[in-house]
Amino acid sequence: MHDPVIETASLSRRFGDKLVVDDLSLTVPAGSVYGFLGPNGAGKTTTIRMLLGLLKPSGGNIHLFGRPSRDITLLSRIGALVEAPSLYPHLTGEENLRHACILKNVLKKDIARVLAIVGLENDGRRLVKTYSLGMKQRLGLAQALLGGPELVILDEPTNGLDPAGIQEMRHLLRDMPVTHGITVFLSSHLLGEVEQIASLIGIIAAGRCQFQGTPDELRARRKGWLRIGVDRPHIAVQMLSQQGFEATHDPAGHLTLPAADPSAAASINRLLVERGFAVHAISHEQPTLEEMFLHITQSL
């Protein structure tokens, strides 16, 4: 595993009485695409604003590239897009990028490179007020990529994009660590979106980190259940209970055995058949990642 580019320890932030971020410890290794997931109001944007120095933490600390985040020079190694891109509509796309170039102390020639990356090379001379939302979002990403940052922090980068725009953005972000050597930290409230591009996932709910790991580790947490179609289900439930299996049945006559191992299916089937039950269906089911995400975030 590479050295972390972002490391927070017991990070917290309070607004009045409300604890919006609570004891948050994140580790984002270099070269990863880190999906920072959580429902609306979970504390994602507050965390990102703290990472960028826009808000001060109430407690805990933040290290970027191994150094305390208070050092403003670290921002020159980071490209950021916080919520919607904040562009100047009376300037052209190129002028907006030139403005960022000046502030980041980046050569003007980099403008053509980043416009090409986001596919806006033919629109740079148009006023930004004539851009579609998707184009603005891409220009915002181009701005974040100016100067070849080592880390880009993107807050809900696909907000307001149509499906085609979302797909384009997804391709751009997924390839960044490989093609440009950039670590990507992106927040989203949509697991489906993050799942496709993230090499690491952090789930935050009610300000606290609920999970941090790879998508495979999240999948491994899934506990499935056996679903069995059988006649006389209420009697079958009693019988299975006497045999030490926890089972319930629904009105449609299906038995559900939670947290059962798929390998248990054969022995339970044999037991039911031996006791004279007619088994007409048997399946092992698992929750989708989306269901797990909802379970994690809504159970608080």
Binding site: I72, A80, A100, L103, K104
Partner: peptide
């Protein structure tokens, strides 16, 4: 307008 401070102040400028 459109809270442009959030991106301006994330630039490496004191």
């Amino acid at each position: 307008s459109e809270d442009r401070w959030r991106n301006l102040l994330a630039m490496p400028v004191p």
